[in-house]
């Protein structure tokens, strides 16, 4: 997936554990792990809003686009 989620870096910078973020955002550990490992297909605005609020950041700080030539070739 060319969209990368930098949740790990954000948590490290804020010295926050994944469990703590789960409690504060109200998302299960399983779902947050899916997001963290880049397996998620989509993110709801409400989830993004909660993450940005709790991590005190912008959506762009969490998500970034990295072009993957291999995946482009697979798609075409």
């Amino acid at each position: 997936m060319p969209i990368q989620v930098s949740l790990d870096r954000m948590l490290l910078e804020r010295r926050m554990s994944l469990t703590e973020l789960c409690d504060r955002v109200g998302i299960t550990m399983a779902n947050l792990s899916i997001l963290k490992t880049g397996k998620a297909k989509a993110v709801r605005f409400s989830t993004l809003e909660a993450l940005c609020r709790e991590l005190d950041c912008q959506p762009g700080d969490l998500l970034s686009f990295v072009d993957d030539p291999d995946e482009d070739a697979e798609r075409s």
Binding site: L32, L35, K41, A42, T47
Partner: peptide
């Protein structure tokens, strides 16, 4: 449904 399951 698979997509829904992976929507966080």
């Amino acid at each position: 449904r698979e997509e829904q399951k992976l929507t966080i």
